[in-house]
Structure formats: structure tokens, C-alpha cells
Simulated scan of single mutants.
Amino acid sequence: MTVNETILRVTIAFLVLFLLARLMGRKEIGQMTFFNWTTAIGIGSIAGNLAVNESTLIKDGVIALIVWTLFTIILDMIDLKSKQGRMVTTGEPLIVIKAGRIMEAALKISRIDMDELQALLRQKDIFSLKDVDYAILETNGELSVLKKESQQPVTKTDLNIKSLKNVLFPLPTDVISDGKINSENLSKLHLEKSWLDRELQKANIRSAEDVFFAQVQQDGTLYIDRKSK
């Protein structure tokens, strides 16, 4: 392979990869789930072959990149439209500490030992497990932590000496996503669909289909985000 051909191949591979990366969006970079990692590895391998492997025709390499990108975009669309699709492509978060107790089964499923869990907690500036109320391992491998109330930082509300609201639920819980009611979560909270309907009516919303996202807060109130028109 001549120098000119190498330069041409690298230039084409770079431009095609750059354009396709822009087309796929920021999610492939910002949220590295198993699916995103697989996609990045695949596209990188194809681009590498296109750039330096003279047995790979430029046309074939470009077609392979485009087809791989189309598969990625299609699966992303499924991921956006279907909760079941999201569970297949990205999995679901795992509660590894619940009400201050370590969930050993969740650690086994995620194949994380106590040393790794403590390392993840230290990255959140938490050096003692007794300070943690809830910890959730997200689908991108990051750990989200809710500290116990006594360990949480003081807020402006606290400084106003206002009494704390009653905590009815341990965590904020999703009850509507993409216009679809999560009956399982409602059941876990011991709430009826009729309660949800009443809360939506109070917000002048006729149907759950008009809601993009709704979440029951710890004090029992409902946070609602309408769908964009």
C-alpha cells in the first residue's frame, strides 16, 4: 500500500467515523453502557481496518460503518420507545445498599466485591458504609448514593428552620415514563391508579399519555413533566 493510499484511507475513515459519530449523538460518549461500549468497539475496529488494511476495499469499509451505525440508531430508537427494549440493550439499575443494608444478591449479580463497592463509595467522598441509606449501581457502571439524613449537607431550607416533611417513601419512584403507567411501581408504593388519575387531574392533565415523566416523591407528592408539544 502506497503512502498516498494510506493517507486517503485514513482521511476517509476519519471523516466517515466523525460524521457517523455526530449522527449517533452524544449518548455514545456520555453514557457508556454495555450496548454503547459494544458499538464503540465495533465501529472502531471497522474504521481501523478501513484505514490500514489494504485487503479491505474502501467501499466495503464505508458500507460496513454505515450499516453498523444504522443498527445502532435503530436499537437506540427501540431503547427510547420500549421499556422492555431498554432492559435488553442497557439493563436496569441495581440497588446494592437498601435502607443501610448491603444487598449481597445484587452484588453477586453485578459481580462486584466489597472492595470495589467501597472504592465506588470513596469516589463519592463516602468512607463509611454506615453513612449510606441507599446506593444504586446505574447501567453505565456509576454508583448513585443517597446519604442518611444525618449525613446530608445543610440546605437553605434547613437554615430557614422549616420543619421537615413526612417521609412516606424511601426513594423517589417513577410511575409514568414515555406516557405509560408503571403499574408495578404503583403497586410497590401501595398506590392505586385512581390516586394517580386524581393527581393528574389536579395538574389539569387528562391522560397519562400526555405525560413524559412522573415520579412520586418521598413526601408523597407527584412530580410531573408534560410531553413537549
Rank of each mutant, 00 (worst) to 15 (best):
Leu191Cys: 07
Asn204Thr: 00
Asp225Pro: 00
Ala203Ile: 04
Leu186Val: 03
Asn182Cys: 06
Leu186Pro: 05
Asn182Lys: 02
Leu222Asp: 14
Leu222Pro: 14
Gln217Ile: 11
Ser183Lys: 03
Asn204Trp: 00
Asp197Phe: 04
Ala214Asn: 09
Ser183Asp: 05
Ala208Pro: 13
Ser194His: 06
Lys188Pro: 04
Gln217Leu: 15
Glu209Lys: 03
Asn204His: 13
Ile205Ser: 01
Glu199Thr: 06
Leu222Arg: 14
Ser194Leu: 09
Asp197Ala: 01
Thr221Ala: 09
Glu209Ala: 09
Phe212Glu: 15
Val216Asn: 05
Gln201Asn: 13
Ser183Thr: 02
Ser187Ala: 10
Thr221Lys: 12
Arg226Tyr: 07
Ile205Trp: 01
Ala214Phe: 07
Leu189Met: 10
Gly220Arg: 11
Glu192Trp: 00
Phe213Ala: 05
Ser207Met: 07
Ser194Ile: 13
Lys193Asn: 13
Ser207Pro: 04
Val211Ala: 01
Lys202Cys: 03
Val216Thr: 09
Val211Asp: 01
Gln201Phe: 12
Trp195Met: 11
Val216Asp: 08
Thr221Glu: 15
Thr221Val: 05
Arg206Phe: 07
Lys188Ser: 09
Arg226Trp: 04
Phe212Ala: 11
Glu184Tyr: 02
Glu209Arg: 08
Asp210Val: 00
Ala214Met: 06
Ala214Ser: 11
Phe212Thr: 05
Asn185His: 14
Arg206His: 12
Leu196Pro: 05
Arg226Ile: 13
Ile205Asn: 04
Ala203Cys: 08
Lys202Leu: 12
Glu192Gln: 07
Phe212Gln: 13
Ser207Ile: 10
Ser207Tyr: 11
Arg226His: 07
Asn204Gln: 08
Gln201Tyr: 09
Leu189Asp: 06
Gly220Cys: 12
Asn182Arg: 03
Thr221Gly: 11
Arg206Cys: 02
Asn182Met: 02
Asp210Ile: 03
Ala208Asn: 08
Ser183Ala: 03
Val216Ile: 15
Trp195Pro: 12
Gln217Trp: 09
Asp219Arg: 06
Asp197Asn: 05
Asp219Asn: 15
Arg198Glu: 14
Leu189Ala: 06
Arg198Trp: 00
Val211Phe: 03
Ser187Cys: 02
Ala203Asp: 02
Phe212Lys: 07
Gly220Asn: 15
Tyr223Val: 02
Gln217Val: 04
Asn204Glu: 13
Ser194Arg: 10
Leu186Ile: 04
Tyr223Pro: 04
Lys193His: 14
Gly220Glu: 11
Gln201Gly: 00
Leu196Tyr: 13
Glu192Tyr: 04
Ser194Thr: 15
Asn204Ser: 09
Leu191Asn: 05
Gln218Ser: 11
Arg198Leu: 13
Asn185Lys: 03
Asp219Cys: 07
Arg206Gln: 13
Leu222Gln: 12
Asn182Tyr: 01
Gln217Phe: 07
Glu184Cys: 01
Ala203Thr: 06
Ile224Lys: 02
